[in-house]
Amino acid sequence: MSRESLKGNIGWRSPVRITASVYSALFLREALTRISSSRFAWFWLLFEPVFNVAYMVLIYTVIRVRTMGGVDVFIWLMVGMLAFFMFRRTAMQVTHATSANQALFTYRQVKPVDTVLVRGGLEGFLMVIVASLLLGGAALLGHSVLPADPLAVLEAFFGLWLAGMGFGLVVSVVTELVPELGLLINYVMTPLYIVSGVILPLSSVPQPYRDWLMFNPVAHGLEAARLGFSPYYHAVPELSISYVYEFSLVSIFLGLALHRRFALRLVTQ
C-alpha cells in the first residue's frame, strides 16, 4: 500500500488499520459469497461433509465392522474424515483464493496474500461448525463423542488447519507461476484420501511401506486426532504430532516468502 495515495482529503490511515479493515471486509464478503453463491449454498456448505461422513459410516457399520483399532468405528471414521476435511478444504480454498479474487486487486489495499489468509481463516471457522454439528448428531445417536483428551484433539485439528494453510499458500503461488503444476497437484490430492488413512487403518500397512506413508503429515494429524478421542486406540507407532507442526511452520514460511517475492506477478496480468 503506497502511503501517499491515502493521504490528502481521504484521510491517512496507518498500514495496520488498512490491513485490519481489508481483512474484516474480505471475511464478510467471502462468507457471504459462500452462503449465497447458489441455491441452498449454505445448506450444502454444512451438509456436504455431513453426508460424506454419514455415507461412509453407513457402509462401514452395516456391512463391515464394529470396531477399528480398538475403538468405535463410527467415531474412528468421523474423526478421521473431519480431520482430513480440515486439511483438504482449507488447502483447496486457500489455493484458489487469488484466482477467485482477481477482480479485487483493482483496489490497491487488497493484496493476494490477504485473500489467502482470510479464506483460510473462514474455512477453519466453517469446519468448527461442521465438526460440532456432526459430533452433536453422533451424540444424539448414542455414541460417546466426548474426547478423552480434548487438548490433543484441538492440537491435531489446529495442526491440520495450519498444514492446509501452508500447503495452500505455497501451491497458490506455484500454480500461478507454473500453471501446469496445478494438474500435477490434482493427481497428488486425489489419492491423498486413501494414503492418509481416512478409511483404511495405516497401522495395518506393513513395513517398510508404512514409513513411506508416514512422510505425509496429514496421516500424522489424523491419527493424533483419533488418539485424542480414545486413549486406547491402537494408533500408528510412528505417530508424531510435532511432525505436523514442523511441516506447517516450514510450508507457511515458504508460502509467505513466495507471496512476498512474487507479489507483483500475482496481481499483474
Binding site: 501517499e4 464478503r29 459469497t33 483493482t106 483496489y107
Partner: peptide
C-alpha cells in the same frame, strides 16, 4: 495525491454479490 482505483469494465465488482454488498465491501476497505 489520493488516486481512486481505476473504474473500468467489471473490475472490482463481484458478480454473485448484489450492488449493495459490493458497495459495502468498498466502503469497508
Amino acid at each position: 495525491c489520493s488516486v481512486s482505483w481505476p473504474m473500468g469494465f467489471g473490475g472490482g465488482l463481484q458478480g454473485s454479490l448484489t450492488g449493495r454488498q459490493n458497495a459495502k465491501f468498498v466502503c469497508r476497505i
